[in-house]
Design a protein around this nucleic acid. Structure first.
Lengths: 235, 235
DNA sequence: CGGTCTTTTGAAGTGCTTCAAAATACGTGG
DNA sequence: CCACGTATTTTGAAGCACTTCAAAAGACCG
């Protein structure tokens, strides 16, 4: 897998795809500290542009920062000893990752499209958290949301190939601004590595769904045609 | 599956198995609020005894309490529409569960052996957290640890049956007080539902490991004979 | 000791993977 | 803007790991 050079610094280079405008991100003040944390991130963070396939951080590196996707898509992953790659999660614009509380990262992260990522030192976040309890509460909320999401993935991974693919599509549709249309930022191989399937199985399953008139699918675009059918297929 | 009657109240009925003495639990004061939270739980919580297979809470019930295992073993689980059960996690003495930040539980919990569970109202925890920021930090730490554990499970579930069983045994050994001897509190069916396998595959895989002199295994007891072999089998 | 629950074992079936290759999409230089 | 080379996706056929179904063996409890 090629690794493209990484552009560092506060540059604001246009990226390939924008899924959600930044101003759609939740920035209002609330008792869970969303406002304070969000303001801190945008104030003390720097925007870093990553080319497609560029590594954002590596496993076992010091975990010093929090990350928020501005544009493009990132993912976390681990390489197993047999060479297979398991993708932990995809991160779309507005979503945060790097919420680990160990000193080293336990997985790697990379940009799967050209992407702009807001990078904030954890030390800055922790300093603010010391002054503003709402920030700690916000971090707790974000971590709990991530936990719930990962627990859902465990359910997904215990299902059949068709249920996994359907679950993936429904989840992506939920997280995208458009209702039934999905612009897939990732390759079939990424989907396969996310769902614990092979690329061939993903391809064949999408075709089956298309043949059952449940979806329309082209290389990078999916339209959910029949949510009722899909929900029934979702186990 | 039978559901046994649940004994409610502050009773202290002896339970089947004790894996770790309570005083081995981390109770020292520290900057992450472990001490404050722990004292609160033991001060304002009540100990409830559950018989084997008794439900501790059900999916969609209001999530009003935090739980800490005193003795015995509990697990969280979800029933899929096809009737299969996916176990989310096992909880051994000293471990906490119910760390959800939604108003309703998104999974069920039950005692898989007779068990004593310390039950604490979230409202009490949150009240303390409002006065003592260290408690919120402690909750954040506990949630982050749970998150890391679930992320590891995702890796486990993307592996072969043998790797899953080996990973399960190594993980259980790590969490038990004894080094290489494991007293399994759960049935083969529970292990199967945890690993996303069938009971037959679990049984056959344990036999294979035994035949390779990697473990000794009887119904409820496992001894890790050769950790090097096991580690190599762990993917 | 008898009944029930649990685990093991065997044999056949199947869903996903693997291997191989064709078809299609994509990016780039001419 | 087209043509070419590369990357990605699709399709086909065979293999295999795990499941399913069935039944025997063993463990547990009153």
């Amino acid at each position: 897998m090629l690794t493209y050079p990484t552009a560092l610094g506060n540059s604001v280079r246009p990226s390939e795809r924008h899924y959600r405008p930044l101003d759609a991100v939740h920035t209002t003040d609330s008792e869970d500290g969303a406002g304070s944390l969000d303001r801190l991130m945008h104030f003390s963070g720097i925007v870093v542009s990553y080319a497609r396939n560029a590594e954002i951080f590596g496993e076992d590196e010091a975990a010093e920062s929090l990350y928020k996707v501005i544009s493009g898509t990132a993912c976390t992953y681990k390489i197993l000893s047999d060479g297979r790659r398991q993708i932990g999660e995809f991160y779309l614009p507005g979503e945060c990752f790097g919420l680990e509380y160990t000193s080293k990262h336990s997985y790697s992260a990379e940009a799967i499209t050209d992407a702009e990522i807001l990078v904030v030192k954890k030390s800055a976040v922790m300093a603010l958290a010391g002054r503003d309890p709402a920030v700690t509460r916000r971090l707790l909320t974000l971590t709990a949301i991530e936990l719930a999401r990962v627990q859902d993935r465990i359910l997904l991974l215990s299902k059949t190939a068709q249920e996994r693919v359907v679950g993936f599509l429904l989840e992506m549709a939920r997280r995208m601004p458009t209702d039934n249309a999905i612009d897939l930022p990732m390759l079939r191989q990424d989907i396969a590595d996310y769902l614990g399937l092979t690329i061939e199985t993903v391809s064949r399953t999408l075709k089956t769904l298309k043949n059952h008139a449940a979806i329309d699918v082209s290389t990078r675009h999916v339209v959910l045609r029949n949510r009722l059918t899909l929900s029934r297929m979702n186990g």
